[in-house]
Amino acid sequence: MSERSDPPGETPPVAHVAHNARVWNYWLGGKDYYDVDQQVGDHITSMFPIIREVARADRTFLGHSVRFLAGEAGIRQYLDIGTGLPTVENTHQVAQAVAPTSRIVYVDNDPTVLAHARALLAGTPEGETDYIDADAHQPQAILDAATDTLDLAEPVAVILLGILNFIDNTDEAEGIVKTLMAAMSSGSYLVLTHPTLELGGAGNVEAMRFWNENATPPITARTGAEIARFFQGLEVLEPGIVSCAQWRPGYVAADEKAVAQFGAVARKP
């Protein structure tokens, strides 16, 4: 692990298999990864060279969407599922910079993320942050735990960035979204990104196969039409379901290059 930054007194388990949270951290220029994560990350990059651009675009999309939600939309509560390792512009940092009273609940089930959770809890004195060790396959358990911090009678932004692609069955993934959004009040939002073989991502087929043979959890790409199913009953904001690098004109340059990762924000009526 390069320049390990684990919390004092906490020793993470030795990693023999690359894990998405750590490889993503490596692609984003972080330092919380093991040699196996770097090796797999480098091999994926050799097969699909724009993967680092995808990772950066996904992170930028998070900042753009949360700034919009905290500002123009007036959202003060966030449920960020599949948090990943802390890097720059985490959800609580972006939201609380706009609205210091914002409350954020992070959810992940990776031991390395748990070891770094204290960095995710360093929010503003006026707001509140919490971390739940839970699996996205169990949305009701997530909702039950989140109510310790969030008031579901008030609007909440549910953030699912690059997480549903680890739910292999599309019907199950759709059910997870439905369970989460059914518990949210009117005026809540769904924020989602998902890898695809569209948008120039056809070259990712072999890279995804390599990932599924050498890392965890296994990943599934989906089409724009499949991803649209996650937004049933919601009002998708302009510009719709697009490359996450091209979401929200005015936040990004009009000529920003598309990446093979869909992104969208939708409001619950």
Rank of each mutant, 00 (worst) to 15 (best):
T179V: 13
A57M: 07
E172D: 13
M47Y: 10
D108C: 07
A173M: 05
D168V: 15
T196E: 02
C244A: 07
F48N: 05
W27C: 05
N20S: 15
D255C: 09
L197H: 04
V177M: 08
A134L: 10
I159C: 05
A228I: 03
I163Q: 03
V94Y: 05
A253D: 15
V36N: 01
Q261F: 14
Y78P: 03
E10R: 15
S188C: 08
Y131M: 07
I104V: 15
A183R: 12
L120P: 00
H137G: 11
T149C: 03
G123R: 01
T220N: 06
E256L: 12
L150H: 03
F231T: 04
K178R: 13
A117D: 06
P86C: 01
Q232N: 14
N204T: 10
Q93R: 13
I176Y: 01
V156K: 00
L190N: 03
E174G: 12
A183F: 06
G41W: 02
T60E: 15
V66E: 04
G187E: 10
P239Y: 07
R209F: 10
D37S: 14
M47W: 10
I132Y: 06
T124A: 11
I241H: 05
P7R: 15
L114A: 11
F210Y: 15
P139R: 02
W24K: 08
I227W: 03
S188F: 04
G233P: 02
W211Y: 04
G82I: 08
F61I: 06
S243Q: 03
H43V: 11
A183K: 05
P13N: 11
A245E: 01
R59G: 04
T179H: 09
H19T: 09
M1I: 12
F210N: 02
G30W: 04
Q140D: 12
V88Q: 14
S243P: 00
R52S: 10
A153K: 15
M181I: 07
V54S: 08
Q140R: 14
T87I: 08
K31L: 14
P111W: 05
Q77S: 02
L192I: 05
G74D: 04
A97C: 14
V107H: 04
H137F: 13
T179P: 08
A153P: 08
D151P: 06
L152S: 02
Q38L: 12
E235W: 01
D151F: 06
N165T: 13
A264N: 08
I75Y: 00
R267V: 10
T45P: 04
E174F: 08
T149M: 00
A157T: 07
F166A: 09
V40T: 07
R22M: 01
A97T: 08
T91M: 10
T193K: 08
N214V: 09
H194G: 08
V156A: 06
L161Q: 07
Q232D: 13
M184P: 01
